[in-house]
Design a protein around this nucleic acid. Structure first.
Lengths: 209, 209
DNA sequence: GCAAATTAATGATTTATTCAAG
DNA sequence: CTTGAATAAATCATTAATTTGC
């Protein structure tokens, strides 16, 4: 059993297609749909989809930045040093040209799930090398999804898998991944667990001093 | 209805107590317990607890950094310029002195929930101003919680609130925050929603150029 | 060819930054 | 100004590619 999700080629293909289609920060509902669909091609959970988009977007952006820097430096070589920051502003960011077509999902908005999209999209400056200055380019990519209600990302993590490893996913909320939650006892304020952070003070091994 | 959680003084007091007690990154199980307990004092969800600890830790750290910088600069003024990085190493980070006592929780580890704690805790250098170098201080704070199973953070978002606004939390997984998930239709690959990112191309307002 | 050793990709977490309500 | 909420960046960790010596 692998310790992490290993997407099938089909799954990757579909995800990339969606990405190219313009999906960047799928909302919980979208994640549910995507997960349901992709689970036809192999084991997958909502969080995998969530992470995939996060990583893919981040690394896409990263690649773009490198390209921009390289191009910038090339320009520096070919021209005299003069206010090159402005040049960068004309290097439009390739990856997500504000996509309008090929929206892959639609669903009932009646339940109030759909977030409002703030529409201050147009501005996307790059401001690359100015240190200590916010790069506006990021804002272009930045999601503006603001979920109205209280759903949030819990929903996106719900497992949808129709792939039957066990019989069927039990419909009871007290069971998560076959583990009953059992509403643990309230606050035995005695110290025992040490299950937190690295706050273990395991000063046992006296390697230092 | 407030748009965000507004903790009661009691809740804050308890949370701070826990924080001082050493809790930094409560795992899902802990979050559940905390939420359950704090819901006695007012409306609260798991994510509130989650965020509270994240923010409190981050801002604690932030304050510490400022203090360190200030003290560092004071030292710079009082002494001749000479290798002041070393000095920083003796300014031990106040907030979480590896806490051992006052562990607020314990619970059955039989279900395999408890993560192993890596025990390379002792080292915590500060390396503050060395640029391009990883600050080891962060590693001290860094959580090492690695959940074994597949629970992950879904669980932490589960609402525990016994405060009855509605009757009781319905035991069915298809209902989240009173909103039925209704298993949306699978993939009508027609374009409609535009519910994604800022990818709206709302070039309507021609404010620029 | 074929493993062990290295390196590159990429899934999963944590931390830093930002936004915005009050 | 404080702080809850959310997203993006940085990092960690594991798997896959690739290289290397035999």
């Amino acid at each position: 059993m692998p310790s992490r999700w290993c997407p099938t080629p089909e799954q990757v293909r579909i995800l990339e297609e969606m990405y190219r289609g313009g999906i960047r920060n799928p909302n919980p509902s979208q994640i549910q749909q995507i997960t349901a669909h992709l689970s036809l091609y192999g084991k997958i959970e909502g969080k995998n989809v969530f992470y995939w988009f996060q990583n893919h977007k981040a690394r896409d952006r990263q690649k773009l930045r490198k390209k921009l820097i390289i191009r910038h430096q090339q320009l520096l070589r070919h021209q005299q040093p003069q206010n090159h920051h402005h040049l960068l502003h004309f290097l439009e960011p390739p990856p997500p040209p504000p996509p309008v077509l090929l929206q892959l999902f639609h669903y009932n908005n009646s339940s109030g799930f759909l977030p409002q999209i703030s529409n201050d999209t147009a501005k996307w400056r790059v401001d690359y090398h100015l240190p200590d200055q916010r790069r506006e380019m990021d804002k272009y990519y930045a999601t503006v999804m603001r979920t109205n209600g209280s759903d949030w990302r819990m929903m996106m993590m719900l497992d949808v898998s129709p792939t039957s490893t066990t019989t069927t996913t039990p419909p009871c909320c007290n069971i998560v991944n076959n583990k009953p939650l059992k509403t643990l006892e309230l606050f035995p304020i005695t110290a025992t667990g040490l299950n937190d952070d690295k706050c273990t003070t395991s000063l046992l091994d006296s390697t230092s001093n």
